[in-house]
Amino acid sequence: MGQPATMAARAQRNDAPWLTLKMREAMEAWLFLSPTLAGFLIFFVAPLVAVLGYSLTEWNLLSQQATFVGLANYDDALMRNADFWHVARNSAVFALGLVPLNMALALLLALALSGRFRGVVVFRTIFFAPVVTSAAAWAIVWKFQLQGEAGFINQVLAGIGITGPNWLREPNWAMAAVIVTRVIKMVGLNMILYIAALQAIPRDYDAAARLEGASGLQIFRMITWPLLGPTTLVIMVITTIGSFKVFDHIYLMTGGGPENGTLVLAFYIYQQGFEFFNVGYASALAMIMFVIVMALTVVQLALRRKDT
């Protein structure tokens, strides 16, 4: 109650008689919001508007020649250029492979490591460490491990009589390899989110269910999983968005190859904009990616609302 009273007292001082209490409160709110709002406008809205503008031009970065071409870049990407659909398919495969695998593994690890037992912190640290490891170091190490005959993985497989593929040189295996290595790198983050959510579930529910004779699986299915719903939604949204934005991992491990088998949307945008200097076309691709990710997020949120 102290805060409104202070505001009322200030209003009563009547430094500015034309300023009503409501107006003063609104002004204060805007002042507090303004740093964040300024950052949002300058670093998000302005670039987004600029990219939208660029996407309507044919602009060569090197020669600095820009021509307004309307929606031609969108038409080119969506209707004429087969590469775009190949790349979009790769992005979808990457997301469909990464998101379920990441979430399932994160949940399993969280269930195993949410309790309190000796050494739990060490295990959590081990699984979280890759998240804070440099992406470049991670990719280089895995590139060595995934070499053809000389790679560690294939040598282990050879030890048990299996001839491993040349992981990063065969398109399907390369996609599988980048998905799995990405999952191992990032799963720790989702694991921590799930552990936090699991620890927030009151233990009474579990105890009551056990008194009623519920099995562990039933407790998980009927109590734990539904209560993890909001966290699962957040994890699904951020992991999906992250999977569509993946760039560094692909750039460092496969460079989009072999045979464009791992050429995903974010890397394709980079290639068009920063290797071919087609800023207009790259901007159109970026807008398309923005719409795809936004649509996926809205669909996920809508499905969640429907469930609840």
Binding site: F144, L146, Q147, G148, E149, A150, G151, N166, W167, L168, R169, P258
Partner: peptide, 8 residues
């Protein structure tokens, strides 16, 4: 006799 793809 040539270092193959994927090897160093």
């Amino acid at each position: 006799s040539i270092v193959p793809p994927g090897e160093r």
